[in-house]
Design a protein around this nucleic acid. Structure first.
Lengths: 353, 353
DNA sequence: GGTTAGCACTCTTGGTATGAGAGTGCTAAG
DNA sequence: CTTAGCACTCTCATACCAAGAGTGCTAACC
């Protein structure tokens, strides 16, 4: 399948027009809108050839052509210029956006929002499970006579606030002592390794608080299981697309967006866990049936991995119909991934120390 | 408008059947399904009377009747038995559900989820703005040489984790000292009153850290503006309803659910800020055009206020088409409001001390 | 050989007619 | 007061038709 440069130009024009209008593009409008210096008849011949190659298809005999999944693939791989910068208006949006956020999850939520605005479609950001994280700081806060809150900051920047019921009443003073004791012993410990040795060693020194320590550990272990978190923004964009005007389709996509676990799985597959190399993190594009889930076979996703201190952390992804504004989406996702990586590295890159 | 008991029974049957089937109910099926001992013709007469009263309406001449907004109103006010308990299956769901949550917002998110399951429709929970809250505990956590995180637990149980950039480098030791100093001085202070006297007094004692204190206060003030938070669960339920099979309607509802500020406003209007009196918090039902927003004119909402220590705090609400399972929704919302109130009061009722 | 005009063909779309079915309102009888 | 019967109305599904859009193919043209 080698395309002449004219065929490439025609394919590019068709894809771009269809992305814009969502209408099948026929030979006449193609000749009119784009100045190929060719008549509709000639374009028809070329379009028939492109269809033979599997790059275009017709919704029905007497309609214009629309790109096939393969056609979009060629478009994004060959025809589309990648690596451009954001258009000025979006650039300004991004500049005005500083992470005046509260913690990691807030930052990710805001990232999803801004990405959705920049890419003008639905955006999803995934944070990894916290159970691989290490404890950076731990604090016990007294609530009532039998309740406390334990605040943990992980080396990934996530804050875990967990309510714990005390097996026995404890005074504020006691909690304070226990708090700094725990903080000393648990700093640097991975959250999923809070059993065995570490606990045994603590119990040796603090036999008196055995019950509390056990209750606490118990709680932290169960908290861990809460799984990955995903942040979705602008889900209603999908409902606005003409290709999803069928309410059954909208429904299936909405349901998917609500199943956090599934969504997290999709993103981590799409990101592929690749550590972005070089200064520019490359976005991964999945078109139509290239997506892992059947529900997404009418969608395209553009996904980039973000990192902390050079280590892959999670993914930023945007989603829309296969008729997606790929250039804009790629720039948005890549820009936000870089932006997020550098912010997180600055704030939470302390693991290196 | 005084209804005979027979008319009441007929209205009740029509509402319940329509809620179940979503089909206009005609005189024949009514006579068949419900054993009134009356012929379809008699029912037709009664139904015509009910229509004259404005309680029923016909989608078109040759269709059965469906309840009007007013019909639903009479149903929920007069005909429906309120205050029943959850059906056994749901009871078990609730029992199995303990708030193994991390903090206030987690609890609210989970409450939304469970409410959605119990009521079998879309659920929304609102948390009040944090700026009226008082500081219960404050802790500074060092991140890097120029960054720290301040963790605040408010008397409402909300944790605020805010990243702050330090104007000058500070050692961990310095931060620790400053942390306990701030904690002493700010405990009990309302978050929106962090100016004037309190700050002046602190600066007097800690002139050395003037810059840091100013930066911190600055940040806390801007953090406050983040507005109310709402937690939505099971939004896709709306897309499943036959009355919203038009994609334009789905779209407008989805957009509404994404506008947190608007949604928060709606809930606080619906809740009416009433402090629930007595042991049983009464749910407020808004049917169709009784709802404040035009987007909600085809919807019904059932809203209950939850409280901490007897003081109204936020709302739990469920939303669906006017053809809503009101009995189930009312029980679900009221039960969850009670459940949530008692949990929050136990955990965060320390303001009384 | 590539390009183009012309033309027959196909398929969707919108509008109209039509018959079946459902449900009603009304009248008159029980 | 209740009910059977019946004419009437309206939706829904189907079929049909004409208009419009776009194609593929053929033959002529440069």
């Amino acid at each position: 399948m080698s395309l002449t440069s004219r065929q490439q130009a025609i394919l590019k024009a068709i894809v771009e027009d269809y992305i814009l209008t969502a209408e099948p593009v026929g030979s006449r409008v193609l000749a009119k809108k784009f100045d190929f210096g060719l008549s509709p008849a000639t374009l028809r011949n070329e379009m028939a050839d492109l269809e033979d190659e599997g790059l275009l298809r017709q919704p029905h005999t007497s309609a214009g052509r629309i790109p096939s999944d393969l056609g979009y693939r060629v478009f994004v791989d060959v025809l589309m210029e990648r690596g451009g910068d954001l258009p000025p208006a979006e650039q300004r949006v991004l500049e005005r956006f500083t992470f005046d956020a509260r913690d990691l999850f807030d930052i990710l939520q805001q990232t999803a929002k801004v990405t959705a605005v920049l890419a003008q479609c639905t955006a999803i950001v995934r944070a990894p499970r916290t159970h691989v994280a290490k404890i950076h700081f731990l604090q016990l806060i007294p609530l009532g006579p039998r309740d406390m809150m334990v605040v943990i900051l992980t080396d990934q920047g996530a804050t875990i606030n967990s309510l714990v019921m005390l097996p026995t009443e404890m005074s504020e003073g006691e909690l304070g002592v226990l708090s700094s004791f725990l903080n000393q012993h648990l700093r640097g410990q991975p959250l999923d390794g809070l059993t065995g040795k570490v606990v045994a060693k603590m119990l040796e020194e603090m036999r008196h608080y055995e019950d509390v320590i056990h209750a606490l550990m118990q709680r932290l272990v169960t908290t861990n299981d809460s799984g990955e978190r995903v942040f979705v923004s602008n889900a209603s964009f999908l409902a606005q697309q003409p290709e999803f005007d069928d309410s059954a389709k909208i429904r299936s996509l909405l349901c998917l967006l609500e199943r956090e676990q599934t969504l997290a799985g999709v993103l981590s597959v799409l990101g592929g866990g690749e550590v972005p190399t070089g200064a520019r993190a490359g976005a991964h594009i999945a078109i139509g049936r290239e997506n892992p889930l059947p529900d997404l076979h009418a969608c395209s996703t553009v996904t980039a991995t973000y990192s902390i201190g050079g280590q892959a952390f999670g993914e930023i992804s945007v989603m829309g119909p296969t008729r997606l504004g790929y250039p804009r989406a790629v720039v948005a996702v890549e820009t936000m991934a870089r932006h997020l990586s550098s912010t997180l590295t600055r704030l939470f890159g302390f693991r290196a120390t």
